[in-house]
Design a protein around this nucleic acid. Structure first.
Lengths: 209, 209
DNA sequence: TAGATTGTTAATCGATTAACAATC
DNA sequence: TAGATTGTTAATCGATTAACAATC
């Protein structure tokens, strides 16, 4: 892998490629050209080849790409075979929904634990994930290697909680709090799911059709 | 408003501006320059002025922008004062979490109803939103003016359900199904929340730090 | 009036698309 | 071998940034 200066736009397309290739696999498609992949995804063949070439040479002239092989390569680039470890903070409705339904293992994540302040959920478990008290958070993080923390907590405590975790060494945050989080450390990564931003762009587009 | 050829990148920044300005309002800030707004948001002043100029002239030379006024303008552009009507399809964990916690009214939406197939939820209500049977969906849509449908249903029925709704005249979809939906009609708008894509980009970034 | 800051035009930068030699 | 399709270099397009006259 060369992977220097990979633009954000390229990185954001990788999961889509991965998803499309997974689908092609399940449909039993063995090989595909950049041209036909592009048709299915509404992307130019040029862009596809350009994107892939950031990471290596996965195709073969005159043939195209082996679907299964390419899927594995992109999965590898995305880190799905890294077995990252993840912890969830905040098991309200949303946290509960994610624990119950989101296929963490498909994306290479193992959910080790969840934490909450509410006595009614502490001590229970959802989908085999044990829910502990927030009081036990610091020691848990210190004793385990946690790659990503899911923040499904109220806005008001979002940045403070993030800071506390950053101090403990956490470097990846999947942020559902609708607050823009930040850190002075450049190696701390935030990935935001801003529900409101998303719905507002839809609002704009239906209002200005 | 001129708003011709507004790029997607600009549109996606509007909710962030709106969020920041709401915050500034609540902090009692009365005026702000593009320069200081840019500092707070990690955006160049040029880009901010360029973005705003797509929609009109909201500032004053030598002064900057009135925070409250600018917030109202951007809210108006986004359509938060349009009182859009919305219906949710699928009240599982995620749908339930959204009904319970998401501040639809802040983004200018009224949730009129939710629909599900499960007899255990049909007839109940969440946060004053009544949950009806999927059998009653078609007639409901015909009798009400529904601007946006939230899809919190299984992948397997996503495209079929969308097609059914498009036939009934629905033109806006907030799609949580992790499936790429499409329609032959260009005025049908899909806004996707792809949880898996989001987590995979985070996976990439922590793997390639 | 002098200083600050806008809206806009021009310059730069980066991302997408087109073209094509290499080669399976 | 001939046809197809890659990986890559060059051309184009669009988005971001810089500069500056207008003006509050």
């Amino acid at each position: 892998m060369k992977k220097e200066n990979i633009s954000d736009a390229v990185i954001r397309r990788l999961p889509r490629y991965y998803r499309q290739l997974t689908d092609l696999c399940s449909r039993g498609v063995v090989r595909i050209s950049s041209h036909s992949l592009g048709q299915e995804m509404n992307i130019t063949a040029s862009q596809i080849r350009q994107d892939f070439s950031c990471f290596g040479e996965f195709g073969q002239q005159g043939y195209g790409y082996n679907v299964e092989e390419l899927r594995a390569e992109i999965g590898h680039i995305l880190g799905v075979d890294n077995n990252h470890h993840l912890v969830m903070i905040g098991v309200g409705n949303l946290g509960h929904a994610l624990l119950q339904n989101f296929p963490f293992s498909n994306t290479g994540f193992t959910v080790d634990a969840a934490f909450d302040v509410s006595p009614t959920v502490i001590g229970t478990s959802v989908n085999d994930v044990p829910i502990y008290s927030m009081n036990d958070l610091d020691s848990f993080i210190r004793e385990h290697s946690v790659d990503v923390v899911v923040l499904t907590i109220p806005q008001s405590v979002a940045q403070d909680t993030a800071n506390r975790l950053i101090d403990l060494g956490v470097r990846g945050f999947w942020n559902f709090t609708n607050v823009e989080l930040s850190s002075p450390f450049p190696d701390v990564k935030f990935e935001n799911i801003h529900f409101a931003d998303s719905l507002l762009t839809l609002s704009y587009r239906i209002a200005n059709r």
